[in-house]
């Protein structure tokens, strides 16, 4: 069994989302707490700006919940930079017990699943969890220099500049985390780092099917199933693969965070990606829709490609993972 059911119903009491200039022009601009019009965020380096993104999102979430840093038991988060330094600096600012995660773009739900599990079992009363990515800092590490003129293929994705954090507590008002399915590494032998959607799709399919099987439910249980950041190609592949396996999900219910965040006319090729992508879309847009009553039960399946620049240069395949967390709001029972 890779699925946890949370009988104590841990609550997401508040969230904080911060985005950059590209996100401000996107479709979900209204769902951000803070938007910056400068990629540098008044810092000397992109890495420092990355840290500030995460700090702002975490502090904003605490402020909205009316909680001080001293009341936080644990901070659980991650990002894509080597040794997850932006997260560790954020942890220093918050000053709580700290778990640093690396799950690439699946980190948001890995953190939420662990937070809910710890709270459900009485291990803490208040946890801050989240993830972040910064377009220029991540591109610098994984691809080419920002200003280098390399033509990207239509399968490549745009790294989100953004951070999403949430405050998870044992008691309070807000959407509740009802269950989580922890993903296993799925590697279909793909090696193209410019087509991560295609590599990650089988991991998302595996986690969704495991979730349904473990909880003995089907797609009709949810109003929305949102994958992390598969993009156009990955989403289509995952949808067709689920259909082939006999898991039917109505097309309009099967969304992707990487496709929700930007407008069609933004030059993002196959869609968005990055550790901040599923975090800002879930903690901003999707939870706002739940609070408006448009959605009651959702399943977020954050997908991650666990490659490094070193492994793909050495010709290794791309190991992928997906973590699913179900969130409910508004008088529902488990």
């Amino acid at each position: 069994m890779r699925t946890w059911e949370f009988e104590q119903r841990p609550v997401i009491v508040s969230t904080g989302t911060v985005g950059g200039p590209f996100e401000a022009n996107g479709r979900l601009a209204d769902d951000f707490d803070t938007l910056h019009d400068d990629l540098w965020l008044n810092e000397a380096t992109y890495e420092k700006a990355h840290k500030v993104l995460f700090e702002e999102a975490s502090l904003r979430a605490l402020e909205k919940a009316g909680i001080t840093k001293e009341q936080v038991d644990f901070f659980i988060g991650g990002d894509l930079i080597n040794q997850i330094t932006p997260t560790s600096f954020t942890a220093k600012t918050i000053g709580a017990g700290y778990f640093g995660l690396f799950g690439a773009c699946s980190t948001s739900m890995e953190g939420l699943a662990l937070s809910a599990f710890i709270i459900n079992n009485g291990g803490a009363a208040c946890i801050v969890t989240g993830s972040a990515s910064h377009n220029a800092a991540v591109e610098k590490q994984f691809r080419y220099p920002t200003e280098y003129g390399a033509q990207k293929p239509p399968t490549s994705q745009w790294t989100v500049t953004g951070a999403g954090a949430s405050v998870v507590m044992a008691q309070g008002e807000g959407p509740v985390v009802t269950s989580a399915t922890i993903g296993k590494v799925v590697d279909m032998g793909l090696t193209d780092p410019m087509n991560m959607g295609g590599a990650m799709a089988p991991a998302a399919v595996d986690t969704i099917e495991t979730h349904f099987r473990d909880r003995k439910i089907d797609a009709s249980h949810y109003d929305l199933i949102a994958t992390g950041d598969l993009g156009h190609i990955g989403r289509e592949v995952a949808f067709d693969l689920l259909k082939k396996h006999g898991t039917d999900i109505p097309e309009e219910k099967f969304q992707d965070c990487g496709l929700l965040i930007y407008r069609e006319d933004q030059p993002v090729l196959a869609g968005a990606s990055g550790a901040g992508c599923s975090a800002v879309v879930t903690y901003g847009h999707l939870l706002n829709r739940m609070k408006k009553g448009e959605l009651r039960r959702i399943l977020i399946v954050a997908t991650g490609a666990l490659l490094s620049p070193l492994t793909f240069q050495q010709g290794e395949t791309i190991p992928c993972i997906a973590h699913a967390v179900s969130i409910e709001y508004g008088g529902g029972n488990l």
Partner: peptide
């Protein structure tokens, strides 16, 4: 299984023009 998936994926992949 990997070969079958790669074929499946490749059919849906947008190729470079």
């Amino acid at each position: 299984i990997q070969q079958e998936y790669q074929q499946f994926q490749s059919e849906r992949e947008v190729k470079r023009p």
